[in-house]
Design a protein around this nucleic acid. Structure first.
Lengths: 291, 291
DNA sequence: CCCTGTCATACCCGACGGGTATCACCGCGT
DNA sequence: ACGCGGTGATACCCGTCGGGTATGACAGGG
């Protein structure tokens, strides 16, 4: 029997994703803990089986073809799905914590976002009859999607328009406007309201840049990694930022918040993987939407 | 190196899904084109690696444990994702039709649903500057989800509340009410409007049952496989059915349609896999929403 | 009580995944 | 110009393991 032309082993996907990300067979092999020749051969076999060229080999590394781009994206999704299958199955069988509670929900939240909402949600959940333990998993700015996809989290709080809800089930919880965060002494800080255009090109006060999926948008402003860093740079009069209303709760004395008239509203959603049949999850979502 | 504890090969998933669906090692092995002993061994290895019991072996077949249920669902999703990766990569590389157009969208539509909308959509698409070939893939009642997930289709017309949009991106296109489809001669056919309760228990005229994901809801009515069959049974005075307004377009002379006051509205959506980066797809969605 | 049908065990073999050594190629340095 | 370094490809070998066949253990039914 020929080796199943229409199916890909996750091993092959892991190999290809590693090569596609490194664009270098040697480094990819090292990352995979194997030697370079078998990796080269595996990718060649993959290309032959698919009947498609995935990489343009250069003397100096490699470049992805269009089909390679597609396989990188789809392959990551498939690997996430396989990883999720393992994690969720182990959890369902109680194999992750021997003897531990098998009803446990992992909730992914951006560190330092939606404090107040989270507090209220956990309080309401504790009063719920069917409640179970909730493990709060703090994560980076755009990490929730991946955590939900690969099964490390069961449910997440996400914020449109920053997070994409594509591929998940979700319910909106709270809508809030956005404010400009300025140094308290700055002339604009005295204004009652501002527009995005007005803060977009203030001389000497470039707009801070947040990472989205690991990469930063282009611009003159500083690259921000966490909220504390941002707070400091604003207090030092080095930058200005756009944030939801609820950011007021962590402002310093040196900060000022001015409502923005034309910034898109931020909606906090509770989101979870589609087709979930978990009863605790359904109960948590119900609790959240009733807050 | 131990054989990668945290990862599942698609081969193992295929095996488990086959066993979980058949609940019988022998039949599953036959379906997989292999002998029973290696299949048994593979499942045992799988259970050991996951540290979880997946099946309760009985002398008379097997039953799924809770963890097994989870792995069945998650495993199917992962297999669909892997199959989609193969199909979409081949399509992107033009390997499916040698020399054929690599820009081609496959649109899944329920046979005989949304005729008029589809006609208008295709007409508008043909006028679009960036238009490409559209292959219309007719499918069963609830088949669109699977076609999108495993990459056989790029985009689909779906109808809530029958189809679930969970896990997809979508845009609503049309909302329509529902009507009762009755034999023309029936007393109720003369009414201006009806309620679901009224047609739910008409003596001698049981409500037809449509399949959802291959299974039929319980009830006394006949099991319907396609629209022609339904039309015939209604004309014969054997059954009554609930259908969207647009069903009027295929009514026979022996049929009558009476608006239902309390049936949920049917919304036709255009839906596609999340995180798509296809430009033709984006253009098609734009065209559809502007209709 | 044996026969049937189920899944598990024992054993063997071939395929193939992976390692080592080496080659072919090209850019770049001196 | 020539050699050197670094890239991916090729050649070859070996051990593992996936799969097949034969058989066992066991329970239920005629």
């Amino acid at each position: 029997m020929l080796p199943a032309m229409d199916t890909l082993e996750t091993r092959e996907l892991r190999y290809f994703v590693a090569v596609a990300e490194e664009l270098h067979f040697g480094r990819a092999a090292e990352r995979l803990g194997m030697a370079q020749p078998p990796l080269s051969r595996a990718i060649q076999q993959l290309e032959r089986r698919l009947g498609v060229s995935l990489l343009e080999r250069n003397r100096r590394g490699a470049r992805l073809t269009g089909a390679g781009e597609v396989l990188l994206q789809e392959g990551r999704a498939a690997l996430d799905a396989a990883a999720a299958a393992v994690r969720r199955t182990r959890r369902a069988g109680g194999a992750d914590r021997p003897g531990g509670p098998r009803d446990r929900l992992v909730l992914a939240v951006k560190a330092a976002a939606s404090h107040e909402l989270l507090r209220r949600l956990l309080a309401a959940w504790a009063l719920e009859p069917g409640c179970c333990e909730i493990e709060v998993l703090p994560c980076g700015m755009s990490e929730q999607e991946e955590l939900l996809r690969d099964g490390r989290a069961d449910v997440a709080l996400m914020h449109t328009p920053w997070n994409s809800l594509a591929g998940f089930d979700s319910e909106p919880l709270v809508t809030e406007g956005q404010v400009a965060l300025l140094p308290a002494g700055h002339p604009l800080a005295a204004r009652r309201s501002l527009s995005l255009a007005e803060i977009g090109d203030v001389p000497g006060l470039p707009l801070a840049r947040w990472p989205t999926h690991g990469t930063y948008p282009p611009g003159p402003g500083p690259e921000i990694h966490n909220q504390t860093q941002l707070a400091q740079l604003i207090a030092l009069g080095r930058t200005v930022a756009v944030a939801p209303d609820s950011a007021r709760s962590w402002l310093w004395a040196e900060h000022a918040a001015v409502p923005l008239t034309d910034a898109p509203a931020v909606v906090t959603h509770i989101a979870w993987p589609p087709h979930s049949r978990s009863l605790p999850l359904a109960a948590l979502v119900r609790t959240a939407t009733r807050l």
